[in-house]
């Protein structure tokens, strides 16, 4: 855990110091280009790598009643048998984390546990959802730097996000919530023994990296305020492939950009690839219709089995003894 924290701090510090002593274009221009290229190529390759292996069998995990008789109610989305059902299942999975939501816990109430209540143990679901959505919103909000004119929806988001009207510049809730959610996810790994045991550097590193990104981002907005106008010109330069001089922008900005670049670089090679992977998951994206539609396995080996003829040859006499119908009668088979 500390190793990954140190690593993140190191990346940040190098970028900060580097840009302070004049390598700003390296961290602000070259690195983001590289990172973005690696991210896109990496993710495409990773998905191609997955897609290259076939799905030999139809193995959805059925999470409810199958479609069978007309008087039995099917769980259309937990056990879909149509494309629409699968689409809804995937939608619920991706946008609402359906499977994490399943965590229910029972508790006995009353004397000697005469009643049972079920309540949901949804902390993980809640914070995971909050984290992913805030991350998305923060990402979308950043479009104000990438686009000119600033799209209408970005402005709307900002207004909504700052609806609390605290402080100046106005406090964006998503940033704060994102940080809180990240700290929760990190705290789980540290304080829950079970999770601490299964956690690897690869689990802490992206969390710390994201914490680093959020912290630098928050600082840029509220404390070590960056010259927004200059930053925008700089970023527009990058997006139009005609980089301008980074002079005059605070080094912290480059630390922020470098951490984001590190995330992009790390992304395709790590568990973060789950972003793309979820779409490929055969236990979720297949319809439970394998008795209705034949699923084809491209490497299906030839059939090889103990045939009836061999079977009858082995047991003909005893089969005749109990009067089982035979293909060849014992005396004829001997000929």
């Amino acid at each position: 855990m500390f190793l990954s924290l140190l690593l993140v701090l190191l990346i940040g510090a190098v970028a900060w110091a580097g840009s302070a002593v004049g390598f700003a274009s390296l961290f602000g221009v070259a690195l983001p280009y590289l990172a973005l290229a690696v991210f896109i190529v990496g993710m495409v390759c990773r998905m191609a790598y997955w897609a290259k292996s076939p799905v030999p069998f139809c193995i959805p995990t059925t999470g409810g009643q199958e479609q069978s008789l007309d008087f039995i109610k099917q769980a259309k989305f937990d056990c879909p048998n149509t494309r629409i059902g699968v689409f809804v299942r995937m939608f619920l999975e991706i946008f609402l984390f359906r499977s994490l939501f399943r965590n229910t816990q029972a508790d006995l109430v009353g004397n000697n546990g005469t009643g049972t209540v079920y309540y949901s143990s949804k902390w993980l679901w809640c914070f995971a959802l909050v984290f992913h959505y805030c991350f998305l919103l923060v990402f979308l909000r950043h479009f104000r730097f990438f686009t000119e004119p600033v799209p209408f929806w970005t402005t709307c988001l900002e207004t909504l996000d700052g609806v609390m009207q605290i402080g100046a510049p106005r406090f964006f809730m998503t940033g704060g919530i994102l940080l809180a959610a990240l700290l929760f996810l990190l705290g789980r790994r540290v304080f829950n023994e079970q999770l601490r045991y299964i956690s690897l550097v690869n689990d802490y590193f992206p969390l710390w990296l994201l914490v680093g990104i959020v912290c630098t981002g928050v600082c840029l907005r509220y404390f070590d305020k960056a010259e927004i106008a200059m930053v925008k010109i700089f970023i527009m330069g990058i997006t139009h492939f005609s980089p301008v001089s980074p002079d005059g922008i605070t080094p912290l900005f480059f630390a922020h950009v470098t951490l984001v670049s590190a995330l992009l670089l790390y992304f395709p090679f790590s568990k973060l690839a789950h972003m793309g992977g979820i779409f490929f998951s055969p236990t979720r994206n297949m319809a439970n219709n394998s008795r209705r539609v034949r699923h084809i396995n491209p490497w299906n080996p030839p059939k090889q089995y103990f045939t009836y003829a061999e079977y009858e040859d082995t047991y003909r006499d005893v089969m005749a003894e109990v009067g089982l119908p035979l293909e060849k009668e014992p005396d004829r088979a001997a000929e």
């Binding site: 292996s53 076939p54 799905v55 193995i59 994490l100 079970q194 999770l195 956690s199 055969p282 236990t283």
Partner: peptide, 23 residues
């Protein structure tokens, strides 16, 4: 087996060790 089963490749790659399955 990795070449034969997309499920295997995927399951090797995308686990985030969230611990939802543990108990």
């Amino acid at each position: 087996r990795l070449e034969k089963h997309r499920s295997l490749k995927l399951f090797m790659d995308i686990c985030v060790r969230c611990g939802a399955c543990a108990d």
